[in-house]
Design a protein around this nucleic acid. Structure first.
Length: 324
DNA sequence: CATCAGGGCCCTG
DNA sequence: CAGGGCCCTGAT
């Protein structure tokens, strides 16, 4: 696999809505690691596909909690690419990282909440963000299905190896995602060789839905929650669990939570009830009672805070759930 | 050795 | 609406 060097650069200042947590926004400790992005200190890098071109994105935190400021660097192979697309790339980054939303009613309203209060204190201003396009996000939800974290990671690596490529910018080498087209033209059998099992059919069908124009991410973004959900469920391979991830992380519908998948169920059972396993409906009732319209955001703050704690503390029950 | 469930979803009856 | 089947792997 050859590595493409991206030598041209444009720099733009981006100003998120205060308050803002850079780390909490660009780095999600709960996500399994992939080679398309990396975070260190006050800097963040990722590959970024836009209009069939592989860009490199670097964000540097040069602001403060109250006066957020990100120095956004866009790297490209061709100078003209940056010139023509810089504005739309900035807009897209602002959307994916949810930089312009106002979380203050939640952050202020629950600052002293007995359960989520300490997570808010630590992560105040953390956004619901996903670095991925809808196509890329669906790859993740597909490899997550009906398996363990370890195998999901293996499937993702195999896909990167087969379809992705590499870029080098700012001294960092990162994997890039691929187009739906490149998967669409490949036979299902060839996909199965990547150890994705029955998901080969899903990967191929989803790629086809993008290529054929059935899925339009930008149109989906204009829809209200109910219509959005219906349309997402209409995508082959998207069921109740995946649609919950999509609605929240990708489309930032942080007032909605009508499903808590098994793995999260175990984790929230501990966080909310200090029990090994509480019924899904009981958990749903509890989060509604405690946080109402902000319930999914509250859950996210709890979740990421827990995985951050894991870095310095040994949380035995959590390790057991991750090793599965 | 066999059996089974794991961060679901589709399809059938 | 319930339930079988699906790829593969590690745990038992």
């Amino acid at each position: 696999m050859t590595t493409k060097q991206l030598v041209h650069k444009a720099t733009v200042s981006v100003h998120p809505e205060p308050p803002f947590s850079f780390v909490g926004t660009v780095h999600k400790p709960s996500n399994f690691p992939t080679t398309d992005r990396m975070y260190k200190g006050n800097e963040y890098w990722q590959s970024f596909n836009w209009n069939d071109t592989a860009y490199g994105i670097k964000m540097i935190d040069v602001g403060t909690f109250e006066t957020p400021n990100i120095s956004l660097e866009i790297y490209s192979d061709l100078e003209t690419d940056i010139g023509h697309h810089v504005d739309e790339i900035v807009q897209e980054i602002e959307f994916r990282f949810d930089l312009k939303s106002d979380y203050s009613p939640f952050l202020e309203g629950f600052a002293t909440d007995p359960i989520v209060g300490s997570a808010i204190k630590k992560w105040n201003g953390m956004r619901v963000s996903s670095p991925y396009s809808l196509y890329e996000f669906l790859l993740v939800t597909t490899v997550l299905q009906n398996t363990t974290v370890k195998r999901s990671f293996q499937m993702m690596s195999n896909l990167f190896e087969r379809f992705g490529s590499k870029i080098l910018f700012d001294g960092r080498e990162l994997s890039t995602f691929w187009s739906a087209k490149s998967v669409h033209v490949v036979g299902e059998e060839e996909l199965r060789e990547l150890k994705v099992g029955y998901r080969a059919k899903t990967l191929k069908r989803q790629a086809g839905e993008f290529v054929g124009g059935k899925i339009d991410e930008f149109q989906l973004r204009t829809m209200a929650a109910t219509e959005l959900k219906t349309n997402l469920l209409d995508i082959y391979g998207v069921g109740p669990a995946s649609v919950q991830y999509l609605m929240f992380e990708k489309f930032h519908q942080y007032h909605i939570c009508d499903r808590i998948p098994p793995w999260e169920q175990k984790i929230y059972s501990r966080l909310l009830f200090d029990k090994e396993l509480v019924g899904e409906q009981q958990l749903l009732d509890e989060i509604e009672r405690r946080w109402g319209e902000w319930k999914m955001l509250a859950m996210h703050y709890l979740f990421e805070n827990l995985f951050w704690l894991r870095k310095t503390n040994n949380i035995e029950w959590l390790e057991a759930l991750i090793l599965l």
